[in-house]
Amino acid sequence: MNLTLKIWRQKNPNEKGKIVSYPVKDIDGDMSFLEMMDVLNVELIEKGENPVAFDHDCREGICGMCSMYINGEAHGPDRGVTTCQLHMRKFKDGDTIYIEPWRAKAFPIIKDLMVDRSAFDRVMNAGGFVSVNTSGNTIDANATPIPKEDADKAFEAATCIGCGACVASCKNASAMLFVSAKVSQLALLPQGKVEAKERVIKMVNTMDEEGFGNCTNTGACEVECPKGISLENIARMNREYLKAMILK
């Protein structure tokens, strides 16, 4: 199929960006979206132009690097997938595709489609852990049985890949889904309960300081989240946060 790509080009954080139009030809439906971008880039390089910079690494939906806003949706039109798992069979001959970076105050653009998501790391540094040392002197793993249901729920929350699609699709650029996934995972497990209160306060405060917006419950994040992280996590975090503030 032949397509027209309208891509956000921005040389660096300081210069202004703009949408540039590129035709691409002979795209196969079995290609992934990023493989289609590879085709464009090789063409640009061999013509002596600058290729489009974008983040990617695993190309199988798990590292959370890839991050494109495609036709107005984070990770594009397909559900439950990251950009790298999106395949060209979702498009048809003659389509025009708009490709932009994540847009949020807390995620400044570095170049073209690449943004700086280190704010997520800083939220994690504030409390996204259990304070145990890796000394090897811990108790036997089976000493504390955990109900399967809790373990499964904790696991579901823990599958967040930190991609930031939730922030990009939220009109307030809120990071609630991301932060609540980690808070929930650890609050659901006995190992994490001990410092649950302190954790939620520190993570939420850091989230606010980093410039993420407020949550107004539009639910857009859940729809675009490639890992199906549920809004229930936000509700759980709100409860945890209230509890922590009351008992403070």
Partner: peptide, 18 residues
Amino acid sequence: DQCVAQGVPFAREYGGLL
């Protein structure tokens, strides 16, 4: 042991064991 202490959610059986 270490990973469980860190909160790694390994698969469990219905009895709650790994």
